[in-house]
Simulated scan of single mutants.
Amino acid sequence: MTQHNIYDKLETLGIELPQAGSPAAAYVMSAQSGNTVYVSGHIAKKDGKPWVGKLGATMTTDEGKQAARAIAIDLLATLHAHTGDLNRVKRIVKLMSLVNSTLDYTEQHLVTNGASEFLVEVFGDAGKHARSAFGVAQIPTGACVEIELIAEVA
């Protein structure tokens, strides 16, 4: 892997990483144990504000998928801030996705694909990960999706 491979890939995709966010409560944005980095849950944002909505009521699956992709970009910004270099990421190990949805909505996995597909686009095989996707009654600030990430770094 070349030194700037991940950043070149992001540029090719037209992605500029935003400034990493800061915690909204009593926690840190990322923590490392050994070679494993745990990135706290990030909520979906649109135009810098919480992307509010409920899948199955006020949002479509495609909109949710776009929200999940936006979260993946924010997760990479936090991972970049933590590691100093995304090329240190050996693999994305796991995602956990919470989808603010109605009781009868059953496409949480398709919403989460927005993040999963983006991570594979950026990291290739190293972006393939285990994951869980849950429907929940509510997410802080009314956000439509929240995703956390676990990565292995060199």
Rank of each mutant, 00 (worst) to 15 (best):
K94S: 15
A70S: 14
D125L: 06
G56D: 02
A130M: 13
A115M: 00
G127V: 07
I92D: 03
V93F: 05
A143M: 07
K90L: 12
M1T: 14
M29S: 07
G41Q: 11
Q19D: 10
A68Q: 03
Q108N: 15
A70C: 06
T102D: 00
R69C: 06
S97N: 11
H42Y: 06
T58W: 10
D8C: 13
L75G: 05
A70V: 07
M29P: 00
V122I: 06
Y7K: 10
A72H: 06
D85E: 07
R88K: 13
R131Q: 07
T2D: 14
A31I: 11
K9Y: 09
Q108G: 11
Q19M: 01
K54H: 11
K9T: 14
P50I: 00
A81R: 06
G114S: 03
A133W: 04
E152V: 02
K46V: 15
I150G: 15
G64Q: 00
L149A: 04
G64Y: 01
L86K: 04
Q3N: 10
V52R: 13
G48H: 00
I147L: 08
Q66K: 03
V99Q: 05
G21Y: 01
H109R: 10
G114V: 09
Q138S: 13
W51Y: 13
A72F: 05
A133M: 07
G48D: 06
E152D: 15
F123W: 05
V52N: 12
I43L: 09
E16W: 07
A25D: 12
L55P: 00
Q66E: 04
D8P: 05
K45M: 09
G114I: 07
A137K: 15
A24S: 15
P18F: 00
I15E: 07
